[in-house]
Nucleic acid binder design. Structure first.
Length: 214
DNA sequence: CACCAGGGTGGTT
DNA sequence: AACCACCATGGT
């Protein structure tokens, strides 16, 4: 069921090619900045940081909050995000850089990321998947609605959805595309009506893509 | 004008 | 465990 919908989204939208960045640390920074904002806004903030030479963890860790805030303002929440970026960079620098982090086990890395302020489950898993290429299922609010609508039931728990996805999709490549495709699909689907004509890609759904909206 | 975007945190019931 | 206000800018 999940795999069928995945294949359909892939056929319809094409490979998304996440994450758009030059290096892992840039992905970590972007993952924090994109929280509760658009990628377009986050990308501007990332580019501004890059222009200032702040995409190296030592530089970012030492940068004054005011400098960071000026760069990341378009991404919103610039006061909290500047502090959190600073701490994230301090963590990476203290660990000996991304190269050293890459040696860590996925469970350890995950718990260390979760211990940082401003990094919850979704951001931690996104970093693990996209920056460290670990086969992790990234569950967000979109995918929970996506799954609920597909089955026509109430929202599933994060754990259940994670288990389901892991049972039907495998490997970094597919899990990478799955999360990206769900986000892309959600941009096109109507959020206001629980089941409109474009919310469900499952062929079994009574209100399929070509059905009239309720 | 209202609503929301590739969330997280802290507080209240 | 489920809800809430808050964080803040920019686009529709």
């Amino acid at each position: 069921m999940i795999r069928a919908a995945y294949e359909r989204m892939l056929a319809e939208y094409g490979p998304q090619g996440w994450w758009p960045a030059d290096e892992p640390f840039e992905i970590m920074v972007g993952a924090l900045l994109v929280q509760q904002t658009t990628w377009a806004a986050a990308a501007m903030a990332v580019a501004a940081l890059k222009d200032q030479g702040l995409l190296r963890c030592e530089a970012l860790a030492a940068a004054p909050l005011e400098v960071l805030q000026r760069s990341i303002r378009p991404a919103g929440f610039f006061r909290v995000k500047s502090r959190r970026l600073n701490m994230l960079a301090q963590f990476v620098a203290a660990a000996g850089g991304v190269r050293a982090l890459r040696e860590r086990s996925t469970p350890r890395l995950r718990s260390e990321l979760l211990a940082l302020e401003g990094i919850g489950e979704e951001t931690a898993d996104a970093i693990l998947l996209y920056a460290f290429e670990r086969a992790v299922v990234v569950v967000d609010a979109y995918s929970q609605r996506w799954y609920a609508r597909m089955r026509g039931t109430a929202a599933a728990s994060v754990l259940e959805l994670r288990t389901r996805v892991a049972g039907e999709l495998a490997g970094v490549e597919e899990l990478n595309e799955w999360h990206a495709l769900v986000v892309e699909h959600s941009k096109r689907a109507c959020r206001k009506t629980p089941l409109c004509a474009r919310c469900c890609l499952n062929s079994d759904c009574q209100r399929g893509r070509n059905a009239p909206a309720p």
